[in-house]
Write a protein that binds this DNA or RNA. Structure first.
Lengths: 231, 231
DNA sequence: TAGTGGTCTAGACCACATT
DNA sequence: ATGTGGTCTAGACCACTAA
């Protein structure tokens, strides 16, 4: 026997049988009670193993019908979404922040629509840069709703990035994030030390606090940046 | 009282208190036994709520020290990594596949290194396209190790995509996946109906079967493609 | 209606990290 | 040495859903 806890052993054993095609794709697994008897453990223990397999997208569970091996396993990857400062520092580089521009404005139409802002809303628009070991790392273009975060009107972003400021001020409830590729604009090319039109990796994120839009940010990375994970 | 199960209620209540800053960032939460007494439930129930909060990256747990609210909550996003066919069909479009080129070759150096292939290895190199409603959707450039999957030497990829073929051959694997932006090559531009140099979203994935590299694939999406998720 | 997973409980022992 | 989370157990009842 190994040193693993029972539910982990059971999980590994079941996974092994699935991989060995002892339980082929789409087939039904024994019920929890049967497995518990087979492994000589409590049903709750088997249950936890099975629940994790379901969370991992390996099996699919339904009452009455039982547990089945998924036909096409839902492959899912988890990405940590770090604060850019940590991202840089954890890579062993020196972080530096610089404010490019900041002003309070009436939101352009695309933003009004995206953040569902009312007619007379105001937003704080902040453009800034993040450097790693002195090299341009990320260009950040952020809009903060002054309706949701009134204090953002007077906040000083010359020393601290709006990112970190916001984390301390406003816990958020939900966020939508999207990854894409974009051609570098003139401004981005200048700040990121590349040519206009270069392909840059881009993350957009909008966060909400109790259904009210707080901030929308577009983060454009230096040329060649990639986001990696294992699963 | 709501209709939620107790552990969900407890989880929601704790999350609410954290968001309301009743338990600020970095602070310590009451021990499981205390919370169980407070909520009038069994400790196991509180434990499950707390475990899920830890899985979600909201809190951090250590024995003896207790449970703390994470300083910078590790926000993690989960992305489903679909088979391109499902991706297209679930969007309500008609899927079409086309083989561009396929041959058995000695792997180029970059691939030998990446897949840790031995000296005399051979690989099947497959280039193909995926269409949505007749429009170019994804350009796929795949290498399959004939060491790991000998049957790939003679498999017919004119009708079925290597993606789907592989899923049936090698059901479960581990993978490393990475997202990036790339300038369209001449070939890609031709197939994806865009201009060379355009910024394209790109996913690379390498999968393993019991520590042996099975396949390396580079998937380049049509212009403007984005990958979105909520969390 | 019956079979399955979903959850809760009360109690127990263990593993780990700080003191 | 002690306090905390990690896990297991045996039993119970509930919720869903296919037959």
């Amino acid at each position: 026997m190994s040193t693993l806890s029972t539910y982990r052993e059971i999980k590994a054993d079941i996974l092994g049988r699935i991989q060995a095609q002892e339980w082929p794709l789409g087939s039904r697994l024994p019920a929890e009670t049967e497995l518990a008897a087979h492994y000589g453990s409590a049903r709750a223990t088997v249950s936890r193993a099975m629940r994790e397999l379901a969370d991992d997208g390996i099996v699919e569970r339904r009452r009455k019908t039982g547990t089945r091996v998924r036909l096409s396993p839902v492959r899912q990857a988890r990405f940590g979404i770090p604060i850019v400062r940590s991202e840089i520092e954890e890579a062993g580089a020196v972080y530096r922040y610089a404010l490019v521009r900041s002003q309070v404005v009436v939101p352009p139409d695309f933003l009004r629509a995206r953040m569902s802002l009312p007619e007379k809303a105001e937003v704080r628009h902040v453009v800034c840069m993040h450097f790693a070991d002195g090299n341009p790392y990320q260009f950040e273009d952020r809009w903060i709703s002054l309706l949701a975060v009134p204090d953002a009107r007077t906040a000083d972003f010359t020393e601290i990035s709006p990112n970190e400021w916001l984390v301390r001020q406003v816990p958020f409830t939900r966020a939508e994030i999207s990854f894409s590729a974009a051609d570098a604009t003139e401004q981005q090319a200048q700040h990121l030390d590349c040519n206009p039109g270069d392909a840059l990796f881009c993350i957009e994120r909008q966060t909400e606090w109790e259904t009210r839009a707080v901030t929308f940010v577009r983060m454009v990375y230096r040329r060649g940046h990639r986001m990696t994970t294992r699963y």
